[in-house]
């Protein structure tokens, strides 16, 4: 800012002084000699003073400027624009199977993207959105595999786009990306999750305590050992990405089946020692469209990006129910 002030004054004096000189010469013809001389003198003095100040400021600031220049360019603070040539990048094709919501039809679109060893499918899609086609709808948020937004089918496998490295997945420089078909389609790669959330809600997730005042006015921590926590911990990793539902063959043929995600959450709370709902929680899913709907295909556990193992959880629920049944028969 200061340097530019100096430059403005420099230009101003280059233009201004000749004009004033010219005015002075002309004014002699009209007898305004004294006035114009004073004007010229004042103006010149002003220009000199401002010029000196500007120059001094530039001089003082040279130190800081020098400091910035001295810094090696690569190490500089801002992110450097990357040299595009010969730095391990490859051009790849991303084939996006988009859902056209107005014509209710799917169509393939091919985008060319530059990728390097760190490019994920999500970062490639976002690159397409910001540089080539902003109309491409994608759902995303954390880009680190914890929010569960970016579930889609990549090269035929339901996966999180942010956790899928492009180079790992590449066959013939091409990657196919499709929306999850196990959820209603909204637009392009985005699916509707209302039904999925409904399923999750239907099993009444959440820690149940008989005494609500004790629950919300917690005074002391629960008495839990590490082993108690380890019993439910693996099932509490669910990020609600919906991939298991997409992969489940049962739910895709019988929508009434409650699905692997919700059932795994039933087990998560059932296995928690602090939960007091007990067998009631189990009996709610003791139906043909509940735990008994599961045919143990195991696809849910295979696609789960967080290693939750819903299929295992459902079998454990079946076991718990059998135990309960046996107990009732004895009693």
């Amino acid at each position: 800012m200061r340097a530019s002030r100096f430059m403005i004054l420099l230009y101003a004096s280059l233009v201004g002084v000749p004009i004033l000189l010219y005015l002075r010469i002309i004014s002699t013809f009209y007898g305004m000699y004294l006035v114009s001389t004073v004007l010229l003198a004042l103006a010149s003095l002003g220009l000199i003073v401002f010029g000196v100040i500007g120059f001094a400021e530039v001089y003082i600031h040279k130190r800081h400027v020098a400091e910035e220049v001295a810094m090696p360019l690569r190490m500089q603070i801002g992110r450097q624009v990357q040299e595009r040539t010969g730095s391990g990048t490859k051009m790849i094709d991303i084939v996006v199977n988009r859902f056209d919501n107005e014509n209710k039809a799917m169509r393939n679109e091919v985008y060319k993207v530059e990728a390097d060893k760190n490019t994920t499918v999500l970062s490639a899609l976002l690159d397409i959105r910001s540089k080539q086609d902003p109309t491409l709808a994608v759902r995303y948020s954390c880009r680190m595999g914890i929010c569960g937004s970016c579930g889609m089918v990549i090269n035929g496998k339901p996966s999180l786009a942010c956790e899928t490295n492009v180079f790992d997945k590449m066959a013939d420089h091409e990657i196919t990306v499709e929306p999850m078909y196990g959820h209603p389609l909204l637009k392009d790669l985005v699916t509707d999750f209302d039904d999925f959330f409904e399923r999750h809600m239907s099993v009444d997730p959440g820690l149940y305590r008989h005494d609500k005042r004790e629950k919300y006015g917690a005074k002391e921590p629960f008495k839990l050992s590490r082993e108690d926590i380890d019993k439910f911990l693996p099932y509490s990793y669910c990020i609600m990405c919906g991939l298991c539902l997409d992969a489940c063959p049962v739910v895709n043929s019988n929508p009434e089946f409650i699905g692997p995600q919700a059932l795994s959450q039933v087990y998560r709370y059932h296995a928690d020692k602090a939960d007091q709902k007990g067998v009631k929680r189990l009996l709610e899913v003791d139906t043909l469209d509940g735990v008994w709907g599961c045919e143990f295909a195991g696809a849910c556990s295979k696609v789960c990006p967080k290693g939750v193992d819903p299929a295992g959880a459902i079998q454990l629920l079946k076991g718990e129910l059998m135990k309960d049944m046996a107990k009732k028969e004895e009693g």
Binding site: G206, L207, Y216, A218, K219, P221, F222, K223, I229
Partner: peptide, 22 residues
């Protein structure tokens, strides 16, 4: 501190030491 206990009662699995303390 009250909030840590509150969240435990909502179901957050705080890491425990051998005595079962948070």
């Amino acid at each position: 501190p009250k909030e840590i206990k509150f969240f435990e009662h909502l179901g957050v699995p705080w890491n425990r030491n051998r005595d079962g303390h948070i």
